[in-house]
Structure formats: structure tokens, C-alpha cells
Design a protein around this nucleic acid. Structure first.
Lengths: 204, 204
DNA sequence: TGATTGACTGACCGCTCGTTCAGTGAGCTG
DNA sequence: CAGCTCACTGAACGAGCGGTCAGTCAATCA
């Protein structure tokens, strides 16, 4: 509950502007082709200015990713806690995810790019310390929900982590489709589709 | 059934060697960080030699991808045709996929990297003409299987393409896990897991 | 066996990119 | 209002990339 100085506010605004620009450029060009020059132009600042707020390109990408995924995790977490049964939890989580990516279409490209590490051994180690854990956290959290439900006999017994992986990546595919399509079916329709398939499979 | 001249055999061998090297380097460093220099070293040839067999880097990547994914599609297709019921088809397809990626661990990185296009507009158009269709073909093919089964009342009615996407990407997640893990559960266990979840969902 | 070929090589080139830093000027200070 | 501060700028730099091509030499030819 601290009062922010004017400098801090300006600083936060700049950081946010630059991260936002980075996200849009990465969404447009892809991770590898997004240059500092273009990010700077998109943000309306000079290239050098970015280096006042971020040590290097990797840190900019990393922080941008963290800011966004933290929001995503928070939204899903909130949805999970709000509901009681597994089916309700899954429906709410799927809904939260689809809503988040509708409001943050640009984030998806970054989210996808960081799932597999790139570059030399050093970069891969850095990636392992920062981005990967965030992603794993969300899967692991989901796996916990499933494990609890299994113990309560609410759902069938499977390896909960594998189950979580399957569901998270499967629903990501639907998110990709929605981000790419120019017009998608109603959000509730896809939420219902995902919930039905996850819960009951394809058997009639 | 044509007889290959010695030159053709040598040519094919070189092409294969270089593609193989490209796949290994991409698996190690990732798509963006894989350089022509390193691919050349891995193949045991000079950098210039690669340009005798491939117009440029993009063509090398593209052809390497095509060679591998054609094999994957053929194997899955064979599995699909061999079986009669949807459940059998799915089990066989999953088994074929897991086996293929066990035998071609290095391919997975390339396979994942090419799903979302990179670079400027021109590169993205090129990507759309070559890699994406191959990927879509495999999903669409699977969607057809599902549509047929729906019409025969074998499975529930959903949007078949979305269903196919969900299953393909969900099972990809398991493949990633198996490629990354140093020791995975038996292949049949994961095949059974996938088949059960896809067919019956998680409800008890 | 001397001449010819052409697959192969790797030093080199042009270019792009991330990163730096001397310079600028708006705004605060005393 | 003179002087100072410091966030900001963008030209310049160096590293590293994809792509080129003059030169090499083993295999073939006549």
C-alpha cells in the first residue's frame, strides 16, 4: 500500500509500453524475427531506451512473458477455486483460458514460442530457470486438481500429470484455432465442447 | 523401377546425410539457432557443399521437414487403414505416432517449430505453401475418420476438425514428454492411456 | 600420361542485428 | 535565469549470419 513516486509511475508506464510493443511485434513476426528496432518503433521510443529498462533482449522477452503468464495463471487459479466439482472446475478453467487469449491474442505467439528452449547451452539454462517453470507450474497445478478428484473417486485414475498435459495442450490447439480464425464460434460453444470431450470422451 | 546411376545414388546419399545433420542440429539448438556452419560440420561437409544440393536455408529446412513428415503420415495412414472400428484406428494411430517419434526423436523439434510461421510476410507465405499444408493434411485426414464414425453413430457428434485438433495436439504433448524424459513408461502404456482418455474421457 | 572435368572447399562478402555511448535538450534547482 | 541533471536518442560498432565463388584435386577421358 505504498505511495508511488512520479518517477516510479513513469517507469512502470514505460516498462508496460515496451512489453506491450514487444508482444505485438512477436505476434506479428514470430519470436526469432522480432527485432529490437521494430519493437522500439512499435513502442514509439528509440532502440537505446529499451536498454534503460531491460538488460538485454532475453530479459525483455522473459519479463514480457512472465507478466502475461502470471495474469493467465491468476485468472485460471481464480476460476479453479471458485468451483466445487471437477466438471465445474474444468469448464471454468477453459472459459478463463479462452477469455484471456481473446483479450490477449498477441500473447499467444510468445506463449507458444517459449515452450521449447532455443539457442546454445547457456540460453537453454536461462530458459529453464525462468520460462519453463512458469509453464510447468500451470500444468502441475492442474494435475493437482485432477489427483484430488481421482482420490475422491470423482474421475478415473490415470497419471495426473500426463492427463493435465493432454488437456492443456489439447485446449491450446483450440486456442490457436480461435486466434488464427477471423471469426470463431461463440466462446461458450468451444468451452462446452472442451468440457464434454474431456469429461466424457468421444464414445456415445 | 528405374535403375539409378552411380551419380544419382551418391546424390541421394549426400542429400540424406545433410538432411539428417540438419535434423540433429535443429533438435539440439532449436530452429532459429541452427546455423548452416554447424549443420555442415555435423554432416562432415563444407558449408558451400550444402548449396550444391539446396537452394538456400529455407529449402533445406523445408525439404528435411517434408521427407520426415511424409514418412510419419504414411505410417499413420497405414495404421488407420489396417483397422476397422474407431477405437482400433485410434489405438493404432497413436501407437504408430509414438513409435515413429521414438525412432526419430530429432524430428520432433523441427515438427514443433514449423507449426507457427516465422519471419516477414514473404517467408510466411512460403511457409503457408509448403509446411503448413502437410500438417493440416494429417489433421484433416484424422477429422475425416472421425466424421465417418460420427455418421455411423460410432462416436458422439462434435465438430470433427476441432476434435481432431484436440486429439492430435493432446497426443503431441505426450510425445514431447516422452522425447524429453530420459526414461519413459512403456509405449503400450501411453498408447492405452491416450486411447482410453480419447474414447471415454475422465468420467468414471 | 597429360588434359579435362566438376564435386567440393572455405575464405570472403554484404548485411542484419543486438548492444553501446557520446551527445542532446526538457525540466528541475538554488 | 544560469547551471545542472538525467532520461532519452540514434549513429556507430562488432559479432555472426547466409550466401558466393575462385581455387583445388581426385577421378575420368582420349
Amino acid at each position: 500500500m505504498s505511495i508511488k513516486s512520479k518517477e516510479e509511475v513513469v517507469q512502470e508506464f514505460r516498462v508496460h509500453t515496451i512489453q506491450d510493443a514487444a508482444m505485438r511485434v512477436i505476434a506479428r513476426k514470430g519470436m526469432a524475427a522480432a527485432t529490437m528496432q521494430e519493437i522500439a518503433e512499435e513502442a514509439g521510443v528509440a532502440k537505446g531506451t529499451i536498454y534503460l529498462y531491460f538488460r538485454d533482449r532475453d530479459e525483455l522477452v522473459e519479463k514480457t512473458f512472465e507478466t502475461a503468464i502470471t495474469q493467465l495463471i491468476a485468472r485460471v487459479e481464480e476460476a479453479l477455486e471458485r468451483e466445487a466439482t471437477v466438471e465445474q472446475k474444468i469448464r471454468a478453467a477453459m472459459s478463463a483460458k479462452l477469455t484471456f487469449f481473446r483479450e490477449n491474442k498477441e500473447f499467444f505467439r510468445l506463449y507458444s514460442s517459449l515452450r521449447l528452449p532455443e539457442g546454445d547451452a547457456q540460453q537453454q539454462r536461462r530458459h529453464k530457470r525462468t520460462c519453463e517453470p512458469q509453464y510447468r507450474v500451470s500444468v502441475t497445478r492442474f494435475a493437482e486438481i485432477l489427483r484430488d478428484a481421482m482420490e475422491r473417486g470423482e474421475i478415473r485414475r490415470f497419471d495426473p500429470y500426463r492427463m493435465a498435459l493432454f488437456i492443456v495442450e489439447g485446449s491450446n490447439a483450440i486456442v490457436v484455432e480461435r486466434v488464427m480464425e477471423e471469426s470463431s464460434p461463440a466462446e461458450e460453444a468451444d468451452v462446452e465442447f472442451l468440457t464434454q470431450v474431456i469429461m466424457g470422451g468421444i464414445r456415445p
